[in-house]
């Protein structure tokens, strides 16, 4: 199996490091070769595109160019915001030669054609058999798979899952034995990158998401986006202000859930870093 490049992005090294740690831990337990690309920079999400289009293309372009230059054919981008910025940049530059030349001039390198993988695409492509093989602690809970915005939209750029009722996370949690619930807020926005600048708004939007999930009996929310995670987890006090009944349903990364199903301990997938406690007995059959 050829090595897949990993672009963790800033969040996975900082406030969402449990996501990064669980990606690496899961890759290890499943035997998937993964290697962090060298000297990567921030992709600019979620500020650059609000300020300068050129900047919002040039920062991800440098990342793409590094991955290609370092010899990777595929690049795993677990962070949904980074994934979206990288995909958008690639999509824009592939369809606009003039712009591509300009951006390549700015970064002083060729963008190249590395294939960008979301965490779901990566798992679907390489991990299905390994998960089936390694799974020894099936998840028993009903879970709500929450995709948010950036992993599915705009469908013309992402070209992945079905856009209004995506299934890729649902199918992955099923592999781990969990029961994904059918719910209506899978792809509604949680407030995204406004966590700091508009915390109250995030509280309201994320509450709508949590309300629907808990109302339909979800015992955990499964995500693949650090912004969704920090909004639903770290901003829980703001969410609970907007909920009819305060909720303590935990939010887990897909990689944490699969990792634990494949025998990794809670510590190994860093669930301890969450603000809302994860209660093992409610989720796993141990």
């Amino acid at each position: 199996m050829e090595k897949v490049g990993l672009y963790p992005g800033c969040s996975l090294k900082g406030s969402s490091r449990e996501y990064g740690e669980s990606v690496v831990a899961l890759a290890r337990v499943l035997g998937l070769p993964l290697e962090e690309i060298k000297d990567w920079n921030c992709c600019g999400a979620s500020s650059a595109h609000a300020v300068s289009k050129e900047l919002s293309l040039a920062l991800p372009a440098r990342v793409l160019s590094l991955a290609a230059a370092q010899g990777y054919k595929e690049l795993l981008v677990p962070c949904a915001a980074c994934f979206s910025r990288l995909k958008t940049t690639q999509h824009t530059l592939m369809g606009d030669d003039e712009r591509r030349k300009k951006i390549e001039d700015i970064i002083g390198a060729e963008v190249g054609g590395v294939k960008i993988l979301s965490v779901m695409e990566w798992l679907e492509k390489y991990a299905i058999d390994a998960i089936k093989e390694k799974m020894n602690h099936p998840i028993k809970a009903r879970v709500a798979c929450y995709y948010g915005c950036l992993l599915v939209r705009p469908s013309g750029v992402i070209k992945g899952d079905r856009v209004e009722d995506p299934q890729s996370l649902d199918n992955l949690v099923k592999l781990a034995g969990a029961t994904p619930i059918d719910w209506a807020f899978k792809t509604e926005c949680c407030g995204g990158g406004m966590s700091i600048a508009a915390t109250e708004t995030v509280g309201k939007l994320s509450a709508a998401v949590m309300e629907d999930a808990t109302h339909r009996g979800a015992k955990a929310i499964v995500v693949a986006c650090p912004m969704c995670h920090s909004n639903l987890d770290m901003r829980r006090p703001y969410i609970n202000k907007n909920m009819e009944k305060a909720t303590d349903v935990p939010v887990l990364y897909i990689t944490q859930l699969l990792g634990m199903a494949c025998g990794l301990t809670a510590e190994e997938v860093s669930v301890g870093r969450h603000f809302v406690n994860y209660k093992e007995e409610e989720i796993c059959q141990k």
């Binding site: 900082g14 000297d39 050129e54 040039a58």
Partner: peptide, 23 residues
């Protein structure tokens, strides 16, 4: 979840240049 010190990339100049040439 917080790092006391920043991570700094090797080729800082490359990113600086991107900023200078865009914004």
């Amino acid at each position: 979840k917080l790092s006391i010190l920043p991570e700094v990339i090797v080729d800082k100049a490359a990113v600086k240049k991107i900023f200078d040439r865009t914004v």
